[in-house]
Every structure is written in C-alpha cells, then in structure tokens.
Amino acid sequence: MVTEDFYCDQVLSGKTVVDRVRETENVLAYHHTKPFYPLHIVVIPKKHIPSLLHLEKKDDTLLLEMMGVIREVASQVQDEHGACKVITNMGDYQDSKHLHWHIVSGQPLQS
C-alpha cells in the first residue's frame, strides 16, 4: 500500500501534470493518471484532508463545493456515457491518504 499523499506531493505541487476536467478555487477534477475504468476522473480538495471521516464542521463549505463539482462532472459523464459511479474509499481501501472521489464509467479495465 502507498503511504504518501500522491495528491499533495504530485498533483497539487505540479510535479505530475494532469488533464484537468474542472477546477475551482478549492477543488480539482482531472482524468486519473492510471485509470482503472475506460473513463476515470478523480476529484480532490486542494486542502489536505486524509479522508471523508476526517472532515470537520469547518470543512462544510469545502464539502459543498466538492459535491457541486462532483455533481457537475458526474452529470456530464452520465449525459455522454449513459451511466457513472461516484466512489470514495477509506481505510485499507484508500491508497493515498487524501480525500478523493472517483467518477467512473464503463467496466473495470483488466490489470
């Protein structure tokens, strides 16, 4: 399991260039760098938050902004592809300890 924070260390720092889908002052949505689905978009807060379980009351505005971006991107994906899933992972399922959501469409790719 990866213990670093890929999103802070690589994406938000600019070390890894990403194909941006949508960006606000506090949220970034981009195409996954190593997709597990034919269409695989990741949505992250620009502030480090380890997971959904670590959100605090003071993060409510950020969470609403994130959900707005997720809703907008998921709506576009559904319109273009007919369906999508919105997923977040926690605990051992979460490789990078930075809150993130996956918006995916299609059958999982074979590894």
Rank of each mutant, 00 (worst) to 15 (best):
P50M: 01
E56A: 09
Q10M: 10
M67T: 08
L52H: 04
T61H: 02
K57W: 06
T33S: 13
I87W: 02
H81Q: 14
H54F: 07
E65P: 09
S105G: 06
Q10D: 09
V17A: 15
N89V: 04
R71G: 13
G14A: 09
E4L: 13
V86D: 06
A83P: 00
E56W: 00
I44Q: 05
N89L: 11
Q94H: 00
H40V: 07
V73H: 07
H31G: 02
Q76W: 04
E80G: 08
C84N: 12
R71T: 15
R20S: 15
E65D: 14
H40E: 03
E4H: 05
N26P: 04
D9W: 04
L28N: 08
E23L: 11
K46G: 06
N89E: 09
V104A: 03
L52A: 11
G91E: 08
P108N: 04
E80F: 06
H32R: 01
V73E: 11
L55Q: 01
H40Y: 05
M90H: 10
V104H: 01
L53E: 06
R22A: 15
C8A: 13
K34A: 15
I103F: 07
W101V: 12
K85Y: 08
I103M: 09
H40Q: 08
P38D: 07
P35C: 07
I87M: 11
V18R: 02
V69F: 00
D19Y: 05
H40W: 04
L64R: 08
L39N: 12
H102G: 07
D9V: 09
E4A: 10
T3M: 08
S75Y: 11
G91V: 05
H48N: 03
